[in-house]
């Protein structure tokens, strides 16, 4: 699990759709369900509730299916990444904070994106603390 975190070779953005699933830790049933759920949702990111639901999932999970990356992280990243550049208001920075955190991890650690094309993340953005409901 951790070896995977440290030894992952960065992917190029254009290769994302053809990543070999066998490179990842196998998913259990619950993770498979999450994976297909978010892959489906990612085709509907024009509806804000889809993004809200992704954000909610990434609140307690480092990656979409848990503590390891899986193929769905890359497929969803491809769709969410271009949208994230629009999130500049403090309201959006707060609303999508967990997606931004996850995008920042993927763009720096797993996908090869030139510095200039990365999402600029303001780590000190003054967003209110979230309290579990």
């Amino acid at each position: 699990m951790t070896d995977f975190l440290s030894n992952f070779e960065k992917l190029s953005l254009k290769d994302i759709s053809s990543i070999d699933e066998s490179k990842f830790t196998p998913l259990n049933d619950e993770q498979k369900a999450l994976s297909s759920q978010f892959q489906t949702l990612s085709s509907r990111f024009d509806e804000s509730e889809s993004l809200v639901s992704l954000n909610e999932n990434l609140k307690s999970k480092t990656f979409i299916t848990g503590t390891s990356p899986s193929k769905v992280d890359f497929l969803v990243f491809e769709k969410a990444f271009p949208l994230s550049f629009k999130w500049t208001s403090i309201e959006d920075l707060s609303k999508y904070r967990h997606i931004i955190r996850w995008i920042d991890l993927i763009q720096n650690k797993y996908v090869d994106i030139p510095e200039a094309d990365k999402l600029k993340v303001d780590y000190e953005a003054q967003v209110a603390r979230e309290i579990k409901e």
């Binding site: 904070r97 955190r101 996850w102 953005a125 967003v127 603390r129």
Partner: peptide, 8 residues
């Protein structure tokens, strides 16, 4: 907690 808002 706020350090970890945008950090993994």
């Amino acid at each position: 907690d706020s350090v970890l808002n945008y950090r993994t």
